[in-house]
Design a protein around this nucleic acid. Structure first.
Lengths: 154, 154
DNA sequence: ACATAATAGGTGTATATACACTCATTATCG
DNA sequence: CGATAATGAGTGTATATACACCTATTATGT
C-alpha cells in the first residue's frame, strides 16, 4: 500500500499518524544528514566532520567541554568524533597548564579542508534555503532552538 | 568565554554563527533524542525502538522496504535496528510467498511494551508541545517535512 | 527455456551517539 | 598538610547510521 504511493502521500501519512516530536525530527535529520554527506563527499568530509571543523575555526582553541556544549553532544561522543579528524591531521590537540585539560585546535590542513569543502556546502545549503525561503528557514531554526531550550532548561 | 555564558547566550551564538541547516537540525535532534531516551528508559525502550514499534503497530505487516521508506532510513540500517527488538521478542519476522521477502510484524510482547511505554512518551511529548504551543509545533513539523520533500524530490 | 535484469535482503566496515565506569589531576576543607 | 570532593577526559559496550559489496530469488526479453 505504501509501495506505490507517491512521496507526498507518504509524508501526509507520516505526519498525521506519528505525532512524536522525536520521530519527526529524527526522520528529517536522517534525510538532511544523508543529503549533506553526499554533497560534501567530493571534499572528503562527512556532515559531522564539516560541522566540527567549522565550529573549531570559529572558536579558536577550545576545551573538550566547550566544544561539547557548542555541539550539544556527549563529551565521550566528541572523543570519538575527533578521532578521524586527528588521524587525517585536520586538528591538533595540545595540553594546557592544567594537566587534565586538552586544547583542541584546527590545523592548517583542517583549514584547507574547510576551504575545499565550502563551495560544496554552499551549494547544498542554498538549494534548501532558496527553496524554503530564508524567512521560513529562520522560523524553523528558531523553533528548533526553542525545543532545545525547553529540554535543557530542566 | 563560552564556559560561563548562560545557555541562552550559547543558543544565540550558535544560531548566529553556524547557519548550516544540517548542523542545526542535527544539534536539536541530539538533544531531543537524549530527552526521549531518558523519558522512555523506565519502559526499557530507546527512542528509535519506540518509533519502530509505533510504526509497526500502525502498519500491520510490513516489508523491510516499506518500513525503510516510512522511517527514511537506509534499508541496511533497519536490519540493525530490528535486531535488538527481535532479540527482545518484540517483533516477529516471517517469510512471504516470494522467498526474497521478509514480513515484519509487531509481536504481542511488543504491543505490551508499547502500552507500557505510552504514558512515559505522552508525558515527554506534552511537556514539549505544551511549552511550544500546538500551532507552533505544527509549523515546525511542516517545515521539517518541507525540507524532506526538497531533498527527496531530486 | 535460458541468459540477463531487476528486486529483496544481509554483511563488512566506518563513523555517530551516549551511558556506565575508570583514571588522573586539581581544588577544598578539616 | 592530608583526606576527600570535584573536575577533565578516556574506554568498554551497545545501539544508530549508511555505503560498498554480496547472495538469493524473481521477472523479462529473445
Amino acid at each position: 500500500m505504501l509501495k506505490k504511493a507517491p512521496k507526498k502521500d507518504l509524508y501526509e501519512f507520516v505526519r498525521q499518524t506519528v505525532p512524536c516530536v522525536g520521530f519527526n525530527t529524527r526522520r528529517a535529520t536522517r534525510l538532511i544528514t544523508q543529503y549533506y554527506d553526499k554533497a560534501l563527499a567530493p571534499a572528503g568530509l562527512r556532515s559531522t566532520q564539516y560541522s566540527l571543523l567549522s565550529a573549531l575555526s570559529m572558536m579558536g582553541e577550545a576545551l573538550m567541554q566547550d566544544l561539547a556544549s557548542m555541539l550539544a553532544t556527549d563529551r565521550t561522543t566528541l572523543t570519538r568524533n575527533l578521532s578521524p579528524l586527528l588521524k587525517m591531521g585536520l586538528i591538533e590537540v595540545s595540553a594546557g597548564s592544567d594537566r587534565r585539560i586538552r586544547l583542541i585546535k584546527i590545523a592548517p590542513k583542517g583549514i584547507s579542508a574547510l576551504e575545499r569543502a565550502l563551495p560544496y556546502w554552499q551549494k547544498a545549503q542554498s538549494r534548501i534555503v532558496d527553496s524554503l525561503g530564508a524567512d521560513n528557514w529562520d522560523q524553523i531554526m528558531r523553533g528548533l532552538h526553542q525545543i532545545s531550550m525547553i529540554i535543557e532548561e530542566n
